[in-house]
Write a protein that binds this DNA or RNA. Structure first.
Lengths: 237, 237
DNA sequence: AACGCACTACGTACGTTGTACGTAACTACG
DNA sequence: CGTAGTTACGTACAACGTACGTAGTGCGTT
């Protein structure tokens, strides 16, 4: 009897290797790397059990020896790329550290555009995620606040980063599997929006679009959002 | 030739009724209401084309006369519940208005726990969404800032609300289709986390969990987050 | 040394999904 | 009045996650 799948289970709690039986042909890292490779190259929807198995060069059902459910494969992927976070020695400036963390996370999500979609329910229990969280807390040591507040700060930071990068990537990851281009879809949506605004039903939106602000600097928008958020945690004098 | 599906299309741009042909048996509102009813009662994963058709009492493929792709069905759903937003006459206090909007959105998402999952790529082009956006801008009239900033504020507000409610609902909507209870899954995850922390590898997380803060008041956490965010947009003296 | 059991590997098969396609009935416009 | 465009819907297909059964393998125990 191989499959124990009818129980809730945290994949990190099951040992990667127990003594008995033949040597597994792959490690979790191998599997995660294969899945990440596929997702990076072809989008998250291309990550199917069959496709990952093919990438590894094994039968589809062999994957289930390593990963009881597909959801757990996603956890492996998140953990793998969370490991790309650089964890440095804190230097006493918690604000600068949080800004740095935010930029790192943003870069990570741009490198792996499927990541935001897997982060919606907080998956933060994988080894790499725990290390990342502990590192954030270490960076926040200089902030005079209870841990509850610090956890709120980290949650808010992650939430904002995810939200903003999702918007930045917009339909990019979503349209990966569609037969038409992102530009084409965007053009059609913009055209429709323009038509709606032209009806005069939405005067303020019309004004907003008329307000010529030049090309939008997404990085600057992101930076401002993070700064505003951190303002709310600055110790009151 | 019935289906024109191989083109990018905004469902709101296609008229609900053209002159020719038999009278459609249902309206878009009927279809959206049916889908929302199913999602509310059985979770988003229960919303399949077959199930919605059955709920309406028609054949599966008849749905495609109204909705070219399943994604458009989602748009109908989002629009339907976005219409539940109460749009009042602004009274000059933009901060209070934004807090009120945030609480309304939060309540909406608690009433329809599947909503956050459909909001990740900003679907904000439906009629109700446009009305909502215009109303937010109207509330922000008293704020001395360019429209660009106001749009940033609204985006940030929506993002934070979505993030926080997603965390509040946590696995609630996700586990809807799983054969075990949410409590059981949570208990197992917490137990695992406790084990990891007990290793001493994560001293600050251990301290965070040891810090006895009593039961967490999620509404208060939410309120604080919104407040901190709005602080960042307060005009500087 | 040898036995047995726990494990790996994987082919087959089932149920479910979105939806392309073809056909028949119907109605407004020329 | 025809005819073109529309609605209705049954059939069918490809792709998905994964349950299950079987065969082979090698560690732990005797």
């Amino acid at each position: 009897m191989a499959g124990r799948a009818a129980e809730p289970e945290v994949i990190w709690a099951r040992p990667e290797r127990t003594g008995r039986g033949p040597r597994p042909a792959y490690t979790r890292a191998d599997i995660a790397a294969a899945a990440v490779r596929i997702a990076d190259a072809e989008g998250l929807d291309a990550v199917t059990m069959r496709r990952v198995a093919a990438e590894l060069g094994c039968g589809t059902m062999s994957l289930y020896n390593y990963v009881p459910r597909k959801e757990d494969l996603y956890e492996l992927m998140v953990d793998a790329v969370a490991g790309e976070h650089e964890l440095w020695e804190p230097d006493g400036d918690w604000r600068a550290a949080m800004v740095r963390v935010a930029h790192q996370s943003r870069a990570l999500m741009h490198r792996h555009p499927w990541l935001p979609r897997l982060m919606s329910p907080v998956y933060g229990f994988s080894p790499s995620s725990l290390r990342y969280l502990e590192h954030c807390l270490a960076c926040l040591d200089p902030l005079p606040a209870p841990y509850g507040t610090k956890l709120e700060l980290i949650a808010m930071l992650n939430g904002i980063v995810t939200t903003y990068v999702t918007n930045e990537l917009a339909t990019a990851e979503r349209t990966r599997s569609l037969p038409w281009s992102q530009e084409r879809e965007n053009a059609i949506r913009i055209a429709y929006l323009g038509g709606r605004i032209a009806t005069g039903e939405y005067p303020r939106m019309a004004a907003a679009f008329a307000e010529d602000a030049g090309p939008i600097d997404l990085e600057a928008v992101f930076e401002r959002a993070i700064g505003r958020m951190l303002d709310g945690f600055e110790p009151r004098p």
